Simulated scan of single mutants.
Amino acid sequence: MPEPIRIFVRVVDGLNYRIGRFAMYLLYPLAAILLASTASRIFLGLPINWALEMSQFILSAYYLLGGAYTFQLGQHVRMDLLYDRLSARNRAITDAFTILFVIFYLAVLFGGGLSSTNYAIVYGQKNYSAWSPPLWPIKVVMTAAIFMMLLQCVSALFKDIAIARGKPLA
């Protein structure tokens, strides 16, 4: 593979690795918010009206930011009725073909995410709740995570093509 592709794969893999490792630590503030909400409700009789939405935002960021990292490590769910019986080269060919559908899906999803994020920023979109937080921060995170997943899929495509050609990248 040409050197620019090797560099692209290294950069995307490294960046998604770091983002995924960061995302793992989002469980701590999530747990703290849920614990504070529960303690406030039980001991003080005062519900925290922002806790549910904030925990949903953090969980969404955790899930989406960790997606590319999970995909990179090959820890995602895979339907492998016949897949495990294939040779490494045939698995790479199969993956290279099927990842094209995922790339198309993510490109469409990314376009929608950009549109939705732009709308939230321009019009100051807020959630319909008592807390009424602005939605642009979580939409920015979601769109960025979708973009990183798209880049990780392109990286995987390059790796699969290299394996299918008999010259793995790493």
Results as ranks from 00 to 15, higher is better:
62 Y>K: 00
35 L>W: 01
107 A>E: 03
132 S>E: 07
41 R>V: 09
8 F>H: 11
29 P>F: 12
129 S>L: 11
75 Q>E: 02
102 V>A: 15
42 I>V: 11
148 M>C: 14
103 I>H: 03
119 Y>F: 03
103 I>S: 09
24 M>Q: 04
163 I>Y: 08
5 I>H: 04
97 F>E: 15
143 T>S: 06
124 G>F: 12
90 N>G: 01
22 F>G: 05
19 I>D: 15
6 R>H: 15
35 L>M: 14
39 A>D: 01
2 P>A: 10
156 A>D: 04
83 Y>S: 01
38 T>K: 00
21 R>D: 00
74 G>V: 04
159 K>C: 07
33 I>N: 00
122 V>M: 12
41 R>G: 02
70 T>K: 06
59 L>Y: 01
9 V>E: 14
157 L>V: 09
127 N>Y: 06
60 S>F: 08
90 N>Y: 04
124 G>T: 09
133 P>F: 07
129 S>K: 14
96 A>E: 07
121 I>T: 15
135 L>W: 13
102 V>L: 11
23 A>I: 00
137 P>L: 09
163 I>K: 14
142 M>I: 10
118 N>L: 13
140 V>D: 02
118 N>D: 02
53 E>Y: 03
74 G>D: 10
119 Y>R: 02
82 L>K: 09
10 R>K: 04
119 Y>K: 11
82 L>T: 05
152 Q>H: 08
36 A>H: 02
157 L>R: 12
55 S>M: 11
88 A>T: 13
161 I>T: 06
21 R>P: 09
37 S>D: 10
138 I>F: 05
89 R>Y: 15
54 M>V: 08
139 K>A: 07
14 G>L: 07
136 W>A: 14
95 D>V: 12
85 R>Q: 08
144 A>N: 00
59 L>P: 07
166 G>M: 08
92 A>C: 13
47 P>S: 10
43 F>A: 08
120 A>Q: 10
108 V>P: 07
64 L>S: 14
26 L>C: 04
159 K>D: 06
95 D>F: 05
90 N>S: 05
101 F>Y: 10
67 G>M: 09
66 G>P: 00
1 M>D: 05
60 S>W: 04
98 T>V: 15
85 R>W: 05
156 A>T: 08
49 N>A: 03
49 N>F: 10
